[in-house]
Nucleic acid binder design. Sequence first.
DNA 1: CTGAAAGCGCTTACAG
DNA 2: CTGAAAGCGCTTACAG
Lengths: 344, 344
Amino acid sequence: MTSKATSIDIAYKAGVSQSTVSRALRNSPLVNLETRQRIQAIAKELNYKVDKNASNLRTQNSLTLALLICEDPTNDDSMINPFFLSMLGSITRATARQGYDLLVSFQQLSSDWHADYEDSNKADGIILLGYGDYMDYAHKLETLIEKNTHFVIWGAEHNNKAVLSIGCDNHQGGVIATEHLLSLGHRHIAFLGDASGHSPEFRDRYLGHVDALSAAGVQADKQLQYHAINTEASGYEAAIALLDSGAQFEAIFTASDLIAIGAIRALKKRGVLVPEQVAVVGYDDIPVASFANPALTTVKQDTQFAGEILVESVLKLIRGQEVSQRLIKTSLVVRSSCGAKVDE
Amino acid sequence: MTSKATSIDIAYKAGVSQSTVSRALRNSPLVNLETRQRIQAIAKELNYKVDKNASNLRTQNSLTLALLICEDPTNDDSMINPFFLSMLGSITRATARQGYDLLVSFQQLSSDWHADYEDSNKADGIILLGYGDYMDYAHKLETLIEKNTHFVIWGAEHNNKAVLSIGCDNHQGGVIATEHLLSLGHRHIAFLGDASGHSPEFRDRYLGHVDALSAAGVQADKQLQYHAINTEASGYEAAIALLDSGAQFEAIFTASDLIAIGAIRALKKRGVLVPEQVAVVGYDDIPVASFANPALTTVKQDTQFAGEILVESVLKLIRGQEVSQRLIKTSLVVRSSCGAKVDE
DNA sequence: CTGAAAGCGCTTACAG
DNA sequence: CTGAAAGCGCTTACAG
């Protein structure tokens, strides 16, 4: 292996000073165009790449973003929330488009992640993707704020105004899902998901659901709300409990697709036809949703767009520009699980 | 924001030289234990973190790995191969366990990715996750080899011996899937997937399939092999073509779960019962597999283990240790789509 | 338009 | 056991 070329090697070959090489490679107009091109040609020929560590050290930035995915301790290690996986994809792409690199890390709630990345100059800013209950790590957020870390957090609006959050409008998502079921004539609509506030996103979906019912003159029935966390198994159990309660219902709105898929499995197990006897609407539009049987009608969170906004926002923070909370609108993807007519 | 503490600040506070601080923080036994602890305490108090750029520049390594996921141009942007997503999760974890950071990037075949990461000292080594046909970028691999980049590639064994590949034993996977179907009494088994060699992994699965048939005294029927790429839609089409051919078959083995899910959709559409009339076995055990209806019997690639081996291998390469090609055994996950008896 | 020089914050021989 | 010093490879004021 011939050792890597440095700017000094190029300077030598081009017969100029190392400073000029550095300027030329950054395409500085200070350098004579012809010299600039000659230097760039030599750099290319020697397969030269600027040493990131050296330039970062000098400029005190890293052109890198860190993505911390905070895992739900209630989930087992092996399975990551598919919704986050979509986000990961779009964030990766958005980051690259902005000329930044992306450091990815899964974090246990327990570990000492706060601030490490920016303090060690590994990243200029941090994007946090976390499960429901941000209260659990409020303390860690405090530390981040205290240290003036540039970070943005995905999810519900935060009560600490120093925290910039970007998220989809969960209330609105709950509204459109419920309005859709109402428009299909359903009046007894069950809700499967955590409505306790432990998971602010789920709670907002539930609140949207309740508000849409009220707006239609339907009183939400507390007996039709069953607790579920974001897993298929939990959705299954919640639906079984609902079924066992003997309550009357013609539709189910779930706080997530995973819950919906579990619920559908429970309904099938009990011989209940979906959507003929019970209509189901999920939330997230994860890839599985379209493969479910029947294909799941669901509230789509635009991960593509969300990833872009998230990246754009941290970058603004880093550059000291104005940024503000932002709620992204959701949309309904109508498939067959709700009983609406669609071409397959 | 109080500006970040440096080792000099700590030295000042501890009344020692900066060199001693540096040694103490790396826990060098050269430094008196008591002094060492005092320095570490001060560092903690000041929330000091070693500047990565400075230490990397000095030591000429980055303690960072890069994961390049090469996307299949035949797939649309939005959907990443779910199998890769699992791998991403396990690689991220394995990397962290080794004390390394992980840079993640999705790469278009077209772009100029080769070597950038290691040349610019952003990463010490590279893990490549790519779709089927590595021949398409053989040239880029050449460049990597030429530059003595430390990299390992996921997938089929490579004909260039300078390339280290780690992968699951696709031939064996094809064998166990087929043996299982044979054991259930099926003799006319269709194969859905690319068998052309354009995708070496799919071809090996096919070859395993053919060999298992031969071993059982069954002649593989070329009429029962239909081309499909790794998407649900392609699986659907292949199954429709198979159905339309009028050929007789009681089972289908597909080169991937996505194909299997598409095939099941096609079978249902045509009123064919799975598994009663046609048994289906997939490949990958992606998360969707267990939610499919019926739940998919499939060949599981142990992503957890694979991620660990992949990371371990690049690290060995980086350290100049001995490493060799490695084939990881697959296992069969029996669910209901094959008609075998299982408790649900 | 170009060059000499300082310095980013570390690590590590070298000397004691 | 500790310190003074060099140097990793850049970028960028400063001087011309």
